[in-house]
Write a protein that binds this DNA or RNA. Structure first.
Length: 775
DNA sequence: CTTGATTATCTTTTT
DNA sequence: GATAATCAAG
């Protein structure tokens, strides 16, 4: 063992011989933290308040285990996001060296996908199984609903998907679902008694397609461990230590897996904070914490209550909010950090102004305190809110990054290429097939596709069987088209058989399929960026193949890894990381920033109207607010807009009730402002709406456009984007959203889609889009 | 049958 | 505002 006093060389931090010579990290911990790190065998529950050094404790604990001779291969560490697991792996690697790579660490979904891939044959799957994302699942459900001739106005794919997903997360199989009187009564009441039948068919179709959806990854792991004790035995003994981060967000399905896995060694550590439980909508169950105490009566509990992250203003403000929740475990979070500055409240007239004000605030704060872009984060409730901030930041030349939302891997062109890759690996993948069969256009339409899928289902053969022997099933022109497609795929499959790696195959497919060429020939701005995106995907595949961490370089391995990367892990843009981060509060969990802006604090937006309607759970929304507040280290700002465009309409907004729930003594606002944002003071009459939009509003001077100068203002109040020229006349045929109107522009007839809204007796013209000449 | 154009629909959060 | 579903024309 190396001498403890040996000089610590930061440059050699990864060298194994240094790992025990570092300053004794146990000294840097407070007492409960230290206990959590060194606690020996047996079940342990750590209740960790926000900013209490939870990640540090987990990291050190794993490092501690390894230093005490536990084989990294025998540690299982489960997190919720790829980001969190990547971060933790990096930090452990910093402490114990490259051994850290051998730890079984990742999200529930990725770890169990890996196990399912190894054990696929037990369940009748092949290890090349596809993973259906939400779009695939919904599309399949739509097909089934159509095939059953059910009314798709009643059976909405979204609703059906959520019902099925909820069932799977409670480990209710299709048969259980159909035989459960309570569920059936529920469905009957909702006039959707066929959901059980749809569920059953859906499961069958997924199985036939050799595909699992997100929930199946957990559901099938449970089935695997239930029905094949040998397999369970293997993993129970393999994993000596099991750790679960964000335990408050696990659902029953996830909890049962971890409980089973740790039943033999009983070394299970769960870390969580009930105040930060924000995934109940996905089946997360706070009761798991109570169940845990029941299932492991000898559990030792440690509370981490000191916040090291934030100023006392921020910690106290957060506490003043969460204290309003009735259901919570007893826990006192406190800090000895300095008081820090008060919380700013920014009031804006519109969502665009909100963007400008926040961007300006960032700009000024950056200058005054000489901060970096990366010190700032903008957090919002819904992804759609990012737009106004993007525009404003761009105008000020501040670089930003958006996490989540329309992720890279959700883009059409990316999913198209992935569709080809998926189908090449797994010819039973029905959704991939539907996506690529007529792409690029080969003259194969919906009718032909439907015929093929129906034929396949009727004869109970895989789709590929029909495609590759199309002559037996069809006649005429379509034969040649389908045949060509089949030959193309076969040539791709041959490359796989020849042992080519993921990159070689993908690059070949991108070229040969004609996808790249089609995008290349598209010279529009969007076309260019699509082309670049595909190139970027190919780069990502190249990186995957070149990375030393990946032993399996097959296309199939790449697809497995990529289908579980959703929101965070875009392929590395340039290494320029000094960017303002924008994301939803959900994706911000576990992160921290010096300055945080919580934006869109308006009633019905945050707290979300939907949440209040569907689940009547204000407390979960409040916990979300708590999570958002506690992301901030030094400085926190709130903002809200008095009006906001929402799917084409302008909506009047009231300040969120959450604003008022923050103890006023932490807010940097005058009393009159405080009165103004309180419910009683705000007016929701239509007239205040008009006032907000009028150019006379002093707070938001609108840039004068040609349109605003020349549109008949008595009837129309223009929005900021217009493409009308001098002398334009506008005539509306009827009111309402997305109406088509005729216009006379300089003597030419034009057609345009415009948006109207009626407020009181006034008709407001909200925006013009797609202005073009008609004949 | 396929294609392009128009219209309807949906917007909470994530793996 | 974006995308899926539907419609009308080739």
């Amino acid at each position: 063992m190396p001498d403890k006093n040996e000089a610590f060389d930061v440059n050699n931090i990864y060298k194994e011989e240094d790992r025990l010579s570092k300053p004794d990290y146990l000294d840097t911990l407070n007492e409960p933290q230290r206990q959590a790190v060194v606690y020996g065998n047996g079940p342990l529950m750590i209740i960790a308040g926000a900013g209490s050094g939870k990640t540090r404790v987990l990291t050190y604990r794993i490092a501690h285990l390894i230093e005490n001779g536990v084989d990294p291969f025998r540690i299982l560490s489960l997190t919720f996001t790829n980001k969190a697991s990547g971060e933790m792996r990096k930090r452990i690697e910093g402490a114990v060296g490259t051994e850290a790579r051998n730890i079984w660490m990742g999200t529930f979904h990725s770890v169990f996908a890996k196990i399912l891939r190894i054990e696929a044959r037990y369940l009748g799957y092949t290890s090349d199984f596809s993973i259906y994302d939400t779009d695939d699942s919904k599309s399949l459900l739509r097909s089934i609903i159509k095939e059953y001739n059910l009314d798709d106005k009643v059976y909405k794919a979204n609703v059906v998907y959520n019902r099925i997903s909820g069932a799977k997360n409670r480990l209710v199989s299709a048969d259980d679902y159909i035989n459960n009187a309570v569920i059936q009564a529920d469905d009957e009441a909702a006039k959707m008694k066929e959901i059980g039948r749809i569920y059953k068919t859906y499961v069958t179709r997924c199985f036939q397609a050799n595909a699992m959806d997100f929930d199946d990854l957990l559901f099938n792991t449970n089935v695997l461990f239930r029905d094949f004790p040998d397999v369970l035995y293997k993993y129970q003994h393999k994993f000596q230590h099991v750790m679960v981060d964000e335990f408050q967000d696990t659902n029953v399905s996830q909890y049962l897996i971890t409980r089973k896995l740790s039943a033999v060694n009983r070394n299970i550590v769960v870390v969580g904070d009930d105040a930060q439980s924000i995934y109940a909508f996905r089946g997360a169950n706070i009761e798991n914490i109570l169940n845990f105490e029941k299932d492991f009566p000898d559990v030792h509990t440690i509370k981490l209550e000191q916040n090291y992250r934030s100023t006392s203003t921020i910690v106290n403000a957060a506490n003043s909010v969460i204290a309003r929740n009735k259901s919570q475990l007893k826990k006192e979070t406190f800090t000895v950090n300095e008081e820090g500055s008060m919380i700013d409240v920014i009031k804006a007239g519109s969502d665009n102004e909100e963007g400008r004000l926040v961007a300006t605030a960032i700009f000024e704060e950056k200058m005054q305190k000489s901060l970096k872009n990366e010190n700032f984060a903008i957090l919002y409730r819904t992804n759609a809110q990012s737009r106004s901030f993007e525009e404003a930041l761009r105008k000020l030349g501040i670089k930003y990054r958006i996490i989540g939302g329309q992720s890279f891997y959700q883009r059409k062109e990316i999913k198209d290429l992935l569709g080809y890759l998926r189908f090449t690996v797994n010819q039973r993948d029905e959704e991939a097939f539907k996506r690529i069969i007529n792409l690029p256009k080969r003259g194969i339409g919906d009718t032909t596709v439907a015929r093929i899928t129906v034929t396949a289902a009727e004869n109970n053969v895989p789709i590929w069987e029909v495609v590759s022997n199309i002559a037996n099933y069809a006649t005429g022109r379509t034969i040649t088209q389908i045949d060509q497609f089949g030959t193309l795929i076969k040539s791709f499959m041959l490359m796989l058989d020849a042992g080519k790696d993921a990159f070689e195959v993908s690059a070949h497919i991108a070229k040969t399929s004609g996808l790249l060429r089609e995008l290349y020939e598209d010279k529009t701005v969007e076309g260019l960026s699509r082309y670049e995106n595909v190139q970027e995907l190919l780069n990502a595949i190249k990186e995957f193949v070149d990375s030393e961490e990946n032993e399996d370089k097959t296309l199939s391995a790449f697809l497995q890894s990529v289908s579980l990367l959703t929101n965070a892990d875009e392929p590395d843009e340039n290494e320029d990381n000094d960017r303002v981060t924008m994301m939803t509060i959900h994706s911000a969990k576990g992160l921290e920033f010096r300055n945080v802006f919580i934006v869109g604090l308006e009633e019905d937006l945050f707290p979300s109207q939907m949440m209040l309607e569907s689940r009547q759970d204000l407390e979960e929304e409040r916990r979300l607010f708590y999570v958002a507040i506690t992301r901030a280290e030094q400085k926190l700002s709130f903002s809200y807009a008095e009006s906001r465009y929402q799917w084409g309409r302008l909506k009047m907004c009231e300040p969120s009730r959450f604003l008022l729930e923050v103890d006023a003594k932490y807010l940097n606002i005058s009393q009159s402002f405080q009165r103004e944002i309180s419910r009683e003071g705000s007016s929701s009459s239509p007239m205040s709406f008009v006032k907000n939009l009028s150019p006379r509003r002093p707070t938001e001077p609108r840039p004068a456009t040609a349109a605003s100068a020349h549109t008949p203002t008595s009837d129309f109040v223009p929005s900021d984007t217009h493409e009308l020229a001098e002398g334009d006349k506008v005539e509306h045929s009827k009111f309402g959203f997305g109406t088509v109107v005729k216009m006379d522009v300089n003597g030419t007839d034009r057609k345009a889609t415009v948006k109207f809204d009626k407020v009181g007796d006034k008709t407001l013209l909200l925006s013009f889009a797609k202005l073009r000449i008609v004949k």
